[in-house]
Simulated assay, not measured.
Amino acid sequence: MPSSHPSSVGDFAIVSLTVPPSKVFPSQAKHYLYIRPNAPKPPTPTSPRELFVVNTPVDTTPSQIRALFSQYLGGFRIDRVQFSSSTAPAALTTPSGGKKRKRRGGGDTALEGAAAWPTTSERELHPSGDSCVVSFVDEASAAGAMKAVLRAARTRTEIPLAPTVHDAALGQARYVRLHELQYPDPVVLQDSVDAFMATFNSAEAERARAAAKARQMPDEDGFITVTRGGRNNPARAEEVQARLEKQKERQNGRDDFYRFQLREKRKDEAKELQRGFEEQRRRVQEMRGKRKYRPE
C-alpha cells in the first residue's frame, strides 16, 4: 500500500525505502532518500551524468546504491558511487541559497590522504544524513534514472533496500574486536606516523622555500614582501632599481589621470606664477635702490 508522504520537497524527489529486519533491529523500518540531478557550483564536466542522493543510511555501501538503481530505478549502468564523507574528493552539490558548511576537522586533505591512520572499525560508517553522487556511464542513463526516480516518487512506491553484507561480529565479540582495533599494532602505527611526518616535513620545506623566494624577489612596484622569519638573502639593489625604473616608465603620460593629480598640477602652476611674480618684484626693488629705474 503506498504511503502518504510527499512526493517531492524543493528540487528533490522523495523515494521511500523499506529496510529489512536484522539481528540488531528485528522489525522492518522505513527510510527516505532525496534525489535530484547533481548541480555543483561551478559545474563539472561529469555533472550532467550524475545524480545527487541525500539522507543515505549510515551503513550504506556503494553496492547497495548500485542495486537500488539497477533493480528498481531504471536499471541503467552506473560508473561510480562517491560518498561525501569519503576521503576521495567529489563534486557534491549544495542547495541553492544555502549557507556553506565548514569542513569538519579543518585538516589538510593532502596530508590526510598521504598517510591514512589504522582503521578503528570493521566497516565504514557514514554520518547521519550523509549524501553521495551517483555517476552514470552517460547523460542518457542519468536522465533515464531520474525519470524512474520521479515515477517512483509520484506513485509513492516503497522500494526494499538490499541488506548490508558484512562479517562484523555482534554482541561481546563485537566489543572485543573494537577494543583490539582501537589499539593497533605498534609497528603499523609507527609506519603511519612516519609516513605522515615525512609528508608534513616535505610540505613545510616547500612552504619555507616559497617564503624565502618571496623575501628575495621584489614585486612589480619594487617592494620586498615582509614575511615571518626575517629577511634572508635580500634582493640586490640593482633588481630594486630596475623595478623602480620600470614603474616610472609605466607612469609616464599618466600625470593627469586622477583628479588629485589635476589639483596638484594646478597648485604647482600657481606656485610657479607666484614665484615669478616675487622674483620680478625683487628685481624692481633692486633697480629702485640703484636709482636706475625710469618708469615709462
Rank of each mutant, 00 (worst) to 15 (best):
F69R: 01
F69P: 01
F69A: 02
S70H: 08
S70P: 02
G74T: 00
G74C: 00
G74L: 00
G74E: 00
G75A: 10
G75H: 12
F76D: 15
F76Y: 15
R77S: 13
R77T: 13
D79P: 00
D79A: 08
V81I: 07
Q82G: 10
Q82C: 11
Q82W: 06
S84A: 15
S86C: 08
T87G: 08
A88N: 01
P89L: 02
A91S: 07
A91E: 03
T93C: 13
T94N: 14
S96W: 08
S96C: 14
S96E: 15
S96K: 14
G98D: 15
G98V: 09
G98F: 14
K100D: 14
K102H: 00
K102E: 00
R104A: 05
R104I: 03
G105Y: 00
D108Q: 09
T109W: 04
A110H: 07
A110Q: 07
E112Q: 09
G113N: 07
G113I: 03
A114D: 05
A114P: 02
A114Y: 04
A114G: 03
A115C: 04
A116T: 10
P118T: 13
T119H: 11
T120Y: 07
T120E: 14
S121W: 09
S121H: 15
E124A: 11
E124N: 10
H126I: 01
P127A: 05
P127H: 08
G129E: 01
G129D: 01
D130F: 00
D130M: 02
S131R: 06
S131P: 07
S131I: 02
C132D: 03
V133M: 07
V133E: 04
F136W: 06
D138W: 01
E139P: 08
A140S: 12
A140V: 12
S141C: 15
A142K: 04
A143Q: 14
A143N: 13
G144P: 01
A145S: 15
A145I: 10
M146Y: 15
K147R: 15
K147F: 13
A148E: 05
V149E: 07
L150I: 11
A152T: 08
A153T: 06
R154F: 09
R154V: 10
T155R: 09
R156N: 15
T157I: 07
I159C: 07
I159N: 08
P160I: 03
P160H: 04
P160R: 03
L161Y: 02
L161T: 01
P163V: 05
